[in-house]
């Protein structure tokens, strides 16, 4: 079995899995690398270009990991969204008691 799962079904995409945790760990790293890489690159610092390149690669990798899952979550959820929105309105207008 591949370490990174990319073929998701609606039931299992809703679970929090290692793909989410990989994204959670990589995402702040991307921000750090992009931020520091950009400022040092503007100063023509070689390390800056390397950090920026690594940051761009990690950003691509993060999307590669999480995007298939997000697509399935979104398409499945949108089928139920109309019903949830109606419930939200009833709640806001006190037409449905909480719980």
């Amino acid at each position: 079995m591949k370490y990174i799962k990319r073929d998701w079904k609606p039931g299992d995409a809703d679970e929090w899995t290692k793909e989410d945790w990989i994204t959670i760990i990589i995402s702040p790293l991307c921000y750090i690398l992009l931020m520091i890489g950009t400022v040092l690159s503007f100063l023509l610092n070689v390390l800056g270009f390397i950090l920026l390149a690594v940051g761009i690669f990690l950003t691509w990798f993060m999307h590669w990991v999480i995007d298939p899952k997000l697509k399935v979550i979104s398409s499945e959820y949108e089928k139920k969204q109309h019903e949830y929105l109606e419930k939200l309105e009833r709640n806001a207008r006190w037409e449905e008691i909480h719980g």
Partner: peptide, 25 residues
């Protein structure tokens, strides 16, 4: 969608942080 919400927040903030870097230089 949920996916659009996630990317909007991530990329909007990525722009904020790189903008700060350009200012810093």
């Amino acid at each position: 969608s949920v996916r659009d919400a996630s990317y909007s927040i991530w990329w909007g903030t990525a722009l904020v942080l790189t903008r700060n870097s350009i200012w810093a230089a």
